[in-house]
Simulated assay, not measured.
Amino acid sequence: MVSEACADRYLPETVQQPVKILVVGALGVGKTTLVGSVSEIRPLRTEETMTEAGAGVDRLAGLPDKNTTTVAMDFGRVTLNDRVVLYLFGAPGQRRFWNMWEGLAEGAVGVLVLVDTRRLEDSFEVLDQLELRADTPFAVAVNHFPDTHPHGEEELRRALDLLPTTPVVDCDARDRTSSLDALIALVEHATEDLAAREAAS
C-alpha cells in the first residue's frame, strides 16, 4: 500500500509515453523556478551560492538579487495525462557550463527556451547554440517579471531572429498553469515537427 505522501512518486500504470524536455536560457531567466513550479515530485536542484570565481565571467547585469546558480541541472516530472509524462531537465545558463548541454539534450524531443525581455541580448548566444542542434525543435517562452515591459510577438520574433513556425508564448515561471501551457505548446510543436519530418522522408 502506497502512502499518500509517496503516491506522487509513482506513475500510473497507464503511462506509455515518457517525453524528455530540455529547459534552457540565460542566467537568471527562471529555469529553476519553472521546473519547480510544474514538477509533481520534489524537484532535484543543484543550486550553489555564487562565489567570486564567477565574477567577471557570469553576466549579472540586471540581476541584483541573484546569489545562487544551477551548476549541473534541475530535474522534475509532470504527468500530462494518463498516457504521457514529461521529464524536465533544466540546464545551467552560464556559458562555462554549456558543455553539459549535449549530454542533457540526448534523447530530448524538444527544448523550451526561457527569455527575459529586460535582458534580451543574453538570449542571443543561447539561441545560437540551438542552431547547432537543428534536429531538435524548440519553443520560446517569454518569462514575465514584475517590471517586464510588454512586447509584441512579431517584435520579439525579429529581435530573436526566429522562424515563423517557432512558437512564442508568454509565461510566468512561478505559476504552474502558465508554465504547463508553455510546455504543452512545445510538445505540440515537437509532435508536428516529427510528423512533418516523417512525411518528408
Score class of each variant (00 low, 15 high):
residue 1 M to L: 11
residue 3 S to G: 11
residue 7 A to Y: 03
residue 14 T to E: 04
residue 15 V to K: 00
residue 17 Q to M: 08
residue 17 Q to I: 09
residue 18 P to E: 02
residue 22 L to V: 08
residue 23 V to K: 01
residue 26 A to R: 04
residue 27 L to T: 14
residue 29 V to A: 11
residue 30 G to V: 10
residue 30 G to E: 05
residue 32 T to R: 11
residue 33 T to D: 07
residue 36 G to H: 05
residue 36 G to R: 02
residue 36 G to E: 04
residue 38 V to M: 08
residue 38 V to Q: 08
residue 40 E to S: 10
residue 40 E to K: 13
residue 45 R to V: 14
residue 46 T to I: 07
residue 47 E to L: 14
residue 50 M to Q: 11
residue 52 E to C: 06
residue 56 G to Q: 09
residue 57 V to Y: 09
residue 60 L to Q: 10
residue 60 L to H: 09
residue 67 N to R: 15
residue 67 N to H: 15
residue 72 A to R: 14
residue 79 T to V: 15
residue 81 N to Q: 08
residue 83 R to D: 13
residue 86 L to T: 01
residue 86 L to A: 07
residue 86 L to V: 06
residue 87 Y to A: 07
residue 91 A to V: 11
residue 94 Q to P: 06
residue 95 R to Y: 07
residue 96 R to D: 10
residue 97 F to C: 09
residue 99 N to A: 12
residue 99 N to G: 08
residue 102 E to S: 12
residue 102 E to P: 02
residue 106 E to C: 07
residue 106 E to N: 12
residue 106 E to L: 13
residue 107 G to Q: 00
residue 108 A to D: 00
residue 108 A to Y: 00
residue 109 V to W: 01
residue 109 V to G: 01
residue 111 V to K: 00
residue 113 V to M: 07
residue 113 V to Q: 02
residue 115 V to R: 01
residue 115 V to H: 03
residue 115 V to M: 10
residue 116 D to N: 14
residue 116 D to Y: 12
residue 116 D to C: 10
residue 121 E to N: 12
residue 121 E to R: 13
residue 123 S to A: 15
residue 127 L to Y: 07
residue 127 L to C: 05
residue 129 Q to I: 01
residue 129 Q to R: 15
residue 132 L to I: 04
residue 133 R to Q: 06
residue 133 R to S: 07
residue 135 D to W: 06
residue 136 T to G: 01
residue 138 F to A: 01
residue 138 F to H: 06
residue 141 A to M: 04
residue 143 N to P: 07
residue 144 H to S: 09
residue 144 H to M: 11
residue 146 P to Q: 10
residue 148 T to W: 08
residue 155 E to T: 15
residue 159 A to F: 05
residue 162 L to W: 08
residue 163 L to K: 13
residue 165 T to G: 06
residue 166 T to C: 08
residue 166 T to P: 05
residue 167 P to L: 03
residue 170 D to C: 06
residue 171 C to E: 05
residue 171 C to D: 03
residue 175 D to S: 12
residue 176 R to F: 01
residue 176 R to A: 15
residue 177 T to R: 14
residue 178 S to P: 00
residue 178 S to A: 10
residue 178 S to N: 03
residue 181 D to G: 08
residue 186 L to T: 01
residue 189 H to L: 05
residue 189 H to V: 05
residue 194 L to M: 11
residue 197 R to F: 06
residue 198 E to G: 03
residue 198 E to D: 12
